[in-house]
Design a binder for these strands. Sequence first.
DNA 1: TCTTGACTTAGAGCGCGCTCCAAGGCGTAT
DNA 2: ATACGCCTTGGAGCGCGCTCTAAGTCAAGA
Lengths: 129, 129
Amino acid sequence: MVATEHPPDALTVAEAAQAAGLSPHTLRYYERAGLLEPVSRNGSGHRRYRAADLERINFLTKLRGTGMPIRDVRRYAELMRAGEATNEERLALLEAHRGTVVAKLEATARNLELIDWKINFYRERCERT
Amino acid sequence: MVATEHPPDALTVAEAAQAAGLSPHTLRYYERAGLLEPVSRNGSGHRRYRAADLERINFLTKLRGTGMPIRDVRRYAELMRAGEATNEERLALLEAHRGTVVAKLEATARNLELIDWKINFYRERCERT
DNA sequence: TCTTGACTTAGAGCGCGCTCCAAGGCGTAT
DNA sequence: ATACGCCTTGGAGCGCGCTCTAAGTCAAGA
């Protein structure tokens, strides 16, 4: 069988990766790189992902999905590990990231305007009514 | 003097790079990589950028600025070189890219929602009114 | 004449973010 | 017993997009 003992509701690395839309390789890499706390293991040393792990993975994929660099995600993870005292800094990190993302969205939208203009240009030239 | 003879209104690589918000290195790299037609040279073999070059550079920075991969920009440049017969394909390329960009914008906006939620969470927790 | 400084090239190097490989372990099915 | 299949690890490799280096050319100024 694949997932040996499934004690409570824990997922294997393959299952968790699938659920997160990542590869098992990537999920292990994130853990090694300090983006994720070391996840619990079963008797054979295999990773077992529980709901809390999946939630953290979900949030980190949002961070990555908005372009936050690995090193900043790691920083965020370190702050999590450091406890409640770091709430202010976590907030600052997220706010700074938000600013970056919004700026990037706006810049992309502006760049897209010229591309749209060019698309219209070609549409007319191609006599597609 | 820096820019030897400035015959009509042509810019040196440094000037053109500055105008485009790129480095001279990058501008030469784009030319080598086929993203840009070989630009004209002065008697000493130095590049001289004219208005038409600057326009093409401007457009390619929009493509790059919306995340189009180098290889696709090169493809677009090849189509330009191949003449009017490729208008349809150029249009298709730009439309496909537009779709990719819009999808990415939407995905980013969705990802940002959860991040915003988290920001609000921390704002409350930090008792910042 | 010599120095300065921007230019030229081919090619090497780099940071990022994965992605994969090799060698080995463990638990179940045959 | 043996094979299968998924797991483990450290470390190598890769694709992308620059970014820089080295060695050399050229034109102008002192």
